[in-house]
Amino acid sequence: MNTILEVQNLTKTYEKSDFSLNNVSFSIPSGSIMGFVGENGSGKTTTIGCILNTLIKDSGTVKIFGKEVADDSTDIRNDIGVVYDTNCFPEHLTPANISSAMRQIYSKWDNELFKEHLRKFKLPEKQKIKAFSRGMTMKLGVSVALAHHPKLLILDEATSGLDPIVRDDILDTFLDFVQDESHSIFLSSHITSDLEKVADYITFIHDGSIILSEKKDDLIYNYGVMRCKAAQFEEIDRADMLAYRKHDYQIDVLVSDRKAVEKKYRDVVIDNISIEEIMLMLVKGEKQ
């Protein structure tokens, strides 16, 4: 399977800010969706900015379709569709205006495909964007991103703040997109239910560092949470724990091999775990 996006040891610091991106590394195989999860301010948008070269990285490499991204990589950016979490288009424009400008910019801009997406999302072609709701604006962003036949979609919180119906429409569109094996999606979000629905891989970022990057199915089927009492917790081998959280009457322990742990600790209850719970355990729990 080809790698469509490869990020190696990416670092980025800001003047007048303590935040930094620390040696971020991950890769996305073609034909897959990677969910990029982290709390607000964890570095998701900074990572995306460095991938797209909208932010100047301090060090590290970003390769898309096997080529390093730079200011003059216009051929690479022709194959990338981007959706941000806010409306990026001037408000006085209509979707038809956007199309007439985009055909000058993207070499594979397909006006018919754009109109098809507008129809699918029930967006008026000749209405000014300033009259659009947030959901309509995000659908427009997705339509623009898809209308130039990209191979890679990069989405920065594209589904945040949307109602479940609109989110579902957009997620279905993403699933259609990756039916083509040469396509991939990098989807940053803190709505973990969206990622559980569509992602093949999940990467967690916290305080500018990658803390976990795994196949979603491995996380859901192999990871688990042990519900322990204090005495049980003391008997657990620390090597089996990824993180733990102490509650009033219980200690939750995150483990990466549920079946092995079930055999080893027969008197402890071990539950399945959701992506959201893994994120909370990794971010708020104490590490081993």
Binding site: R77, F89, I105
Partner: peptide, 22 residues
């Protein structure tokens, strides 16, 4: 004046991700 419009910064960010040079 339009360069100082309220979503100009977002538009510039979007431009920087498009297939064109700065």
């Amino acid at each position: 004046i339009s360069m100082g419009a309220k979503n100009q910064l977002q538009w510039e960010k979007y431009q920087a991700s498009m297939p064109l040079r700065r």
